[in-house]
Simulated scan of single mutants.
Amino acid sequence: MPHGPRLGGVNATETTTTTADDAVTAAGVPAEAPAASIDENHLDESPRGLTIMAVVGVFVGILSGMFGIGGGTVIVPALVWLGLTQRHAAATSMMAIVPTAVSGVVSYALEGDVDWVAAALVFAGMFVGGQIGSWLLSKLPEIALRWAFVAFLVFVIINQAMSNPSRDSHIVMHPIMVVGLIAFGVVAGVLAGLLGIGGGAICVPALSIIFGASDLIARGTSLLAMFPNSITTSVANVRRHMVHVKAAAIIGIVAAVTAPLGTWIAAAVSPRTGAIMFTVYLSVLLVRSLFVALKAMRRAA
């Protein structure tokens, strides 16, 4: 009897018909079976599901270019909605970020908005932190991961609301700055591996507020730092059988195509306008993530 592709140790032959929120048929009609457990994978790979992944890729690419993020804050909730657990959604998101980050880095580098030294130092820390985060991702309970994602969003929103980014400043290197960038990279790497984000949502505000980079340099540098970290963390996740490669490829390739458009928008608006737009986007996402976390708690009770 033929078997479907393996997905984190789960047979995915017949897992294309149930989302995380409601059991649905391939046509989108509610099924008779009860909703799946939050510890099971039932990715919707119907034409509807594949279309949603492509649309997610478009938005991820634009947001990545605009805000210097990998797009995990969009990819993870979308994949959870399509049927992956938070754990597998986070791991799949990390792989999708690889081509997205490459495209964004090229766009920012062409305008001279990348600090190569700072990116290398942050990545040095993220490499270590990413492995820790990937290990925690395979160990922590599903509900804990969902609430960790909510807490992360609250932290980033507060930081964005308090920031007043400049377009003229840059990072001044000295011994304390070097140590600070590496230490910060470790923290960002843990969060990236644990939450399935590239790390940009925490790197961009930190590079501006703590380390003094301009808004555009912070975004370009963040994308460069997350690119190799996404690769190393994805390798660890693949070894733990937590990645849905097909979903990662669809989202990542589409996002890579649309990222340059987001970069153009970022340069066209003022730094403050960009920060406000990012805060609004994260606030909407926070409401959605909070709702999903509460629903998961009720289902597990």
Rank of each mutant, 00 (worst) to 15 (best):
P228A: 09
P205N: 03
G198H: 04
F211I: 12
G199P: 05
L216G: 02
I217C: 03
L207G: 13
I182P: 00
T232Q: 06
F211N: 14
S214D: 10
G198D: 05
I197K: 01
S230E: 06
G185I: 03
L223P: 00
A188C: 14
I182M: 05
S222D: 10
I231T: 12
A206F: 03
I217W: 11
G200W: 06
I197C: 04
F227I: 10
L195S: 11
T232N: 05
A213C: 15
V187W: 15
I202G: 03
N229M: 15
S214H: 10
A236W: 00
I217Q: 12
G189T: 11
L216R: 05
G199N: 09
I231L: 13
F184E: 09
V190G: 13
P205C: 02
A236L: 05
F211A: 07
C203A: 13
T233R: 02
V187M: 14
G220Y: 15
A201Y: 00
L216H: 11
C203L: 14
A183Y: 07
P205T: 11
N229H: 04
L216T: 11
R239H: 11
V186W: 05
A236I: 02
G189N: 14
A225Y: 00
I217G: 01
G196Q: 06
A201D: 06
T232W: 00
L223F: 06
I210M: 12
G193V: 10
L194H: 08
A201H: 01
F211V: 13
I197R: 02
R219T: 14
S222G: 12
V187G: 13
G196H: 06
V235Y: 00
G198W: 02
S214C: 11
G198F: 02
A236P: 03
V235T: 13
D215E: 05
I182Q: 01
A213H: 13
I202K: 05
F227W: 06
G200H: 08
L195T: 12
G198M: 04
S234G: 12
L195P: 15
G189H: 10
I182C: 04
G193H: 07
A183H: 08
D215G: 07
L207A: 10
V187K: 08
A206D: 07
I182K: 00
G189A: 12
